[in-house]
Every structure is written in structure tokens, then in C-alpha cells.
């Protein structure tokens, strides 16, 4: 009797698997692949070092003391089929000061991709849903308390060009509703748009560079002298959001 019900259960599970496979797209291999995605903040191609002097495109000196951003909806893309090939990651706070917050692991059952997409920021619904925990805990310092809403990304540092008395610059970029929204979707192509084939016995690591200089000179030219701080949603915050949307690129894809 017991064995009988076991067989029935097995049969049922097979049936379920069969159903699921039919619903999915044909590219599924039936195997599971794990991909590492590592964000690496850089300045002029070199890994960011806090408090080290740099010069931006305006010739302004600057140092960086903090760089943090919310990542979500991380997925590999096959741009030929347009289909996502890997699961999502829900809201992780990436902090340049805490190395392990910059790496992500996604699993996929499909083995061909040539793109990577993700979102910087926190969706509007999650800005209006009350007290949250984990990486969305307001104690993380990424939540405005006087004007409810998450800071999607922040860059802080110092520059002799800052007009603020303490010589700092603080860009706290947020805004989730209507035309002030600063959530940005990013789609990166593999180098030379090459198609990457995953193998189930090899681990692939995608290194994504985030170029800090682009905050000043990305989609828009924003010198430190003209703006030393942004602390609220609005038209200026949107310009910085466009700039951080342009800071990312795939630096390398390595196989181990």
C-alpha cells in the first residue's frame, strides 16, 4: 500500500514536471546553471579606493566616501529570443564599503545568453507600503524620513569645488512617482555582443563595472561646482538618475 502511494506520488510529480516544461520556452536545458554577477565600482578603469584623490571630466578634484545603490530584477537576457534566462533578485542594497553586498548569484535552467539586465532603485509600490525590513530597513540610511521614499542610489565625497561649507558633496537620489521617478532599468550587452554558453560543470562570473565618473559626466554634464548636493526628488535628481543609469558596463566574463 505504502509503496503503491509512493508510485502514484512519483507519477504525479512526473506529470507536474511535464506540464511545467511545456509551459516554459524551448530553450530550457533541464539543467541548472549558477552565474555570479559582481559589481565593481571603478574610476578611470581602476577599482574605486575610498578617499583617494581623483579628477573628473571638468577637471574637478574629488574623493569618494560612500557609494550605495539598490539592485533588483537582476536577470540574464538572451537578446535573440528576448526572454529572461535567469531568476530575479529582489532589492539588495549594494554598498561599495561592504564587498559581499556587491556580488549576486542567479540560477538559470537555460544556457545561452548575451545580455544582463537589472534595475537600480525601489519600485513605487514598495515606497508606499509602510515599515519594511532587511535591506529595505530605514535604518540602512536609504530612506527619507521627512518625505517618505527610498534613496535609490547615493554618492558622497569631498571636493575643493564644492560650495558647501564642509567641502563635501552628497548626492542622495530618489523619487518614485510620476515624472520625478528615478528608478532606472539597465540592459547591458556582453562584450562584442558575444553569445555566452553556460556549461553545467563551469562557474561563470560576470564582472560589471560601475564608473563613478559618469555621475558627473554621463547622460548629462553635472559639475560638482554647480551642484554639491541633491537631497530630494525633482528635476535635478532625475538628471543624476540618468547618469547612474549610464555608469554600468560588463567588463569581463570569466569561466572557472
Amino acid at each position: 500500500m505504502k509503496a503503491g502511494s509512493g508510485y502514484i506520488l512519483c507519477a504525479f510529480l512526473f506529470l507536474l514536471c511535464g506540464c511545467q516544461k511545456e509551459l516554459k520556452n524551448d530553450n530550457s536545458t533541464g539543467k541548472s546553471y549558477t552565474v555570479h554577477i559582481v559589481f565593481q565600482p571603478v574610476v578611470q578603469g581602476q577599482p574605486l579606493v575610498f578617499n583617494q584623490p581623483y579628477t573628473n571630466a571638468f577637471g574637478e578634484d574629488y574623493t569618494v566616501t560612500a557609494f550605495r545603490f539598490y539592485v533588483s530584477a537582476l536577470s540574464l537576457k538572451n537578446n535573440n529570443t528576448g526572454l529572461p534566462v535567469a531568476g530575479e533578485v529582489k532589492y539588495r542594497l549594494a554598498d561599495a564599503a561592504i564587498g559581499n553586498t556587491l556580488s549576486f548569484t542567479v540560477s538559470t535552467d537555460q544556457n545561452i545568453f548575451n545580455g544582463l539586465s537589472f534595475q537600480i532603485g525601489v519600485d513605487s509600490i514598495d515606497n508606499v507600503s509602510g515599515a519594511r525590513s532587511g535591506d529595505l530597513d530605514p535604518a540602512k540610511g536609504m530612506f527619507w524620513t521627512w518625505n517618505s521614499g527610498y534613496i535609490m542610489a547615493k554618492l558622497e565625497g569631498a571636493s575643493s569645488y564644492s560650495v558647501v561649507p564642509d567641502g563635501n558633496f552628497t548626492y542622495h537620489i530618489g523619487g518614485f512617482s510620476g515624472e520625478n521617478q528615478t528608478i532606472r532599468s539597465i540592459l547591458l550587452s556582453t562584450p562584442q555582443n558575444q553569445q555566452i554558453t553556460l556549461k553545467d560543470d563551469r562557474m561563470i562570473t560576470i564582472l560589471v563595472n560601475g564608473d563613478i565618473d559618469k555621475w558627473f559626466h554621463g547622460a548629462h554634464a553635472l559639475s560638482i561646482a554647480s551642484n554639491a548636493f541633491v537631497h530630494s526628488p525633482g528635476s535635478l535628481a532625475k538628471l543624476y538618475a540618468d547618469n547612474y543609469a549610464a555608469m554600468f558596463s560588463i567588463a569581463s566574463i570569466t569561466e572557472e
Binding site: 535604518a139 524620513t145 518625505n147
Partner: peptide, 25 residues
């Protein structure tokens, strides 16, 4: 109307320098 949800309202006075002047942590 800056606060969009009753649950997060207390954060405003808790961290305001001229009110409770504390940090969440």
C-alpha cells in the same frame, strides 16, 4: 503630506535634529 504611510511617520520626529534627535540604530 510628506509621509505616505502611518507606519513610517515616527521615523520623522525620531531623527529630526530639533525633535527627538536620535538615530534609528
Amino acid at each position: 503630506g510628506g509621509i505616505n504611510h502611518i507606519e513610517v511617520q515616527p521615523l520623522a520626529p525620531i531623527v529630526a535634529e530639533n525633535e527627538m534627535a536620535e538615530t534609528i540604530d
